[in-house]
């Protein structure tokens, strides 16, 4: 669907020759830090910006050439919510519904985005998170074959985020294809069938979350939140530890044999060399993959 897509803003290459294909009926996530090129990609895919190079097909259409036909069949939520400020929530959804050939009922979407009790509120009076949810609602109401969501859960409280995940899952169950971008590792890991990790305009990894993790880590992660940097070197020769990643005060050890490594750590603590307070053991996550691939944590 997307081949060698490139977009330049003057001398800045925002998207640098990326290629990927989205399968029908899947949730495809694009994960990356600020400025990675996610929004640029989405806006090109929906025909709002033109690409400098590359070939793109969305539902068989070239978005730059057949915007009108494409828009009939997709729903789009852009990163910054922008709606008529003095229309109410209900009126905004109704207006958007009127644009599409076979929209979802307004009441159902209100239910999905949890704004049923705000139908009569003018949109400029909504809180940031409520406005964000309404923007997602205007994309969903399209009943389009593909729903594009640019950071649908940014600014939502944890409960609203869970609710949004549930709705996106429901849409997938209805056979919709969903393309979403996110900063949140756990969101990509939980929600997405496949994830493309993008950084500085390039895709640095692509696959199912499980694939990405197992491809890069056979190990478990041991986190030590309060280790002095001077001990870092000495930790490398722990039995079973294959990699060390430092991120501020926090040190993460990736160990093939967790038990052996922990036994040794306890001995060292007993000898007074270091403190283990706050120690935790977990499976490796997308966060670890990102850290390994870029050498940076996602939220810096």
């Amino acid at each position: 669907m997307v081949r060698q897509l490139t977009k330049k803003y003057r001398n800045l290459t925002a998207v640098n020759g990326i290629s990927f294909t989205i399968k029908q009926g899947e949730i495809f996530g694009m994960l990356g830090p600020n400025g990675a090129g996610k929004t640029t990609t989405v806006e090109i895919l929906v025909g709002l910006r033109s690409a400098d190079a590359g070939e793109i097909r969305v539902l068989g259409f070239d978005p730059a050439a057949h915007k009108e036909k494409l828009h009939q069949k997709i729903g789009v939520q852009l990163q910054m919510p922008a709606l008529f400020p003095r229309l109410t929530v209900g009126e905004s959804l109704k207006l958007h519904a009127s644009f599409y050939p076979a929209p979802f009922p307004v009441d159902q979407v209100l239910e999905w985005i949890g704004l049923a009790d705000r139908v009569k509120t003018q949109t400029y009076k909504l809180s940031g998170g409520q406005l964000q949810r309404l923007a997602v609602g205007t994309a969903m109401i399209s009943n389009g074959d593909i729903i594009f969501l640019d950071e649908p859960t940014t600014g939502l409280d944890p409960q609203a985020r869970r609710q949004m995940w549930a709705v996106i899952g429901q849409l997938k169950a209805m056979g919709k294809t969903i393309f979403l971008t996110t900063h949140y590792m756990e969101e990509a890991q939980y929600l997405c069938d496949r994830v493309a990790i993008i950084d500085h305009g390039s895709i640095i990894a692509l696959g199912t979350p499980e694939q990405l993790i197992s491809e890069h880590f056979a190990e478990k992660a041991i986190e030590l939140p309060q280790v002095l940097a001077e001990h870092k070197e000495s930790l490398l020769n722990l039995p079973g530890v294959t990699r060390i990643q430092a991120d501020g005060d926090k040190i993460t050890l990736y160990a093939a044999q967790v038990e052996a490594a922990i036994r040794e750590l306890i001995q060292r603590e007993a000898a007074g060399v270091l403190t283990l307070s706050g120690l935790s053991v977990r499976s490796a996550s997308l966060e670890d993959v990102f850290l390994k691939l870029t050498g940076r944590s996602m939220r810096q």
Partner: peptide
């Protein structure tokens, strides 16, 4: 306010 842009992604 990017409202034109937003509406630009609809069939309108």
């Amino acid at each position: 306010k990017r409202i034109l842009r937003s509406l630009g992604a609809t069939p309108l």
